[in-house]
Amino acid sequence: MKKIFAVVLTIACLFAFTACGSDAETLKIISLGEYMSYDVLEQFTEETGIEIKYEEAPTSEEIYTKYMSGGLDYDLICISDYMIEKLIAAGELAEINFDNVPNVANIKDIYMENSKDFDPENKYSIPYFWGTLGIFYNTEMIDEPITKWADLWQEKYSGKIIMMSSMRDTFAAALAQLGYSINSTDEKELNEALQLLLAQKPLVMAYYVDEAVDEMLLGSAAISMMYSGQAYYTMSLADHDNFAFVVPEEGSNIWIDSYVITNRCDNKEAAEKFLNFINREDIATQLFEEVMYATANELVYDAIEDEELKLEEALFPQDASVDRCDVFKALDDTGMELYSKLWKQLKAE
């Protein structure tokens, strides 16, 4: 009898864990890291009475894993392009009713256009921030201008080079250098890229993402792969003129982080209210000023008075650079397996 009681209680507990909090007037949001202003969240609750449970994760992969494991029913997700493609393919997203989001008109057309690479009919996602992948370097330690990915392979910078610890990005640097598409899943091309990366590994100080900021500031590293907004953030913490950011001439990746509504969302109207809210000019301005990544909101961009800021490559990669860039396409299972195998091979050497 006691045993049965224990088992029943266990099951009850498990249900209690999964069934909690389906309150209609609450939105559960998961986003990429450091992408929100808590003031904005408070203001939203004040204006609409809708409570928000906001949480962050450092990479799109982790968000995807968290969401797909099914434990938590997020209503809104802010995540990168290729993961949106994956979520759409998995049938996990709900179509946004754009009639409820009139402020979507504030998004610059080109970003809606670029979004078609992963959301072909612009049905599921609204661009939030965007940027490129490039090379960030210390101009005091490196006196020649850096222009291409191959510069990360120069022996004179041995031990002072940081590559990305995310496999797509680091492989993109090798693939672009070889003249291949950064979305290649061709085994031969990827193997060539691996050989190139293996040859570079003895020169590499470390494979980092967030830590690259600290190591560049400390001067432990001289040259690092970096995302544009991250590069601007690093500059803002130090003497701006000591650093430069460049989108390599061989081409690179342009990424768009967008908001999507999941099909587990049981209050779509509230979710759309939120999307409309963050795209309102005053709110989008506040978000831009706090997050300091390239905003997709045209009104915010046009209202920037500091012309130099608009020309800052590390914040708003310029048109000429963006033209060289491609959006990452989602990998299918075979492609993912291949990348994973090669990545482990690189790390194990």
Partner: peptide
Amino acid sequence: GGKILLIGNVIEQEFNK
């Protein structure tokens, strides 16, 4: 620095990445 692969890293990569 992500340059050394231990068995725990392999498992982490398979789950998270």
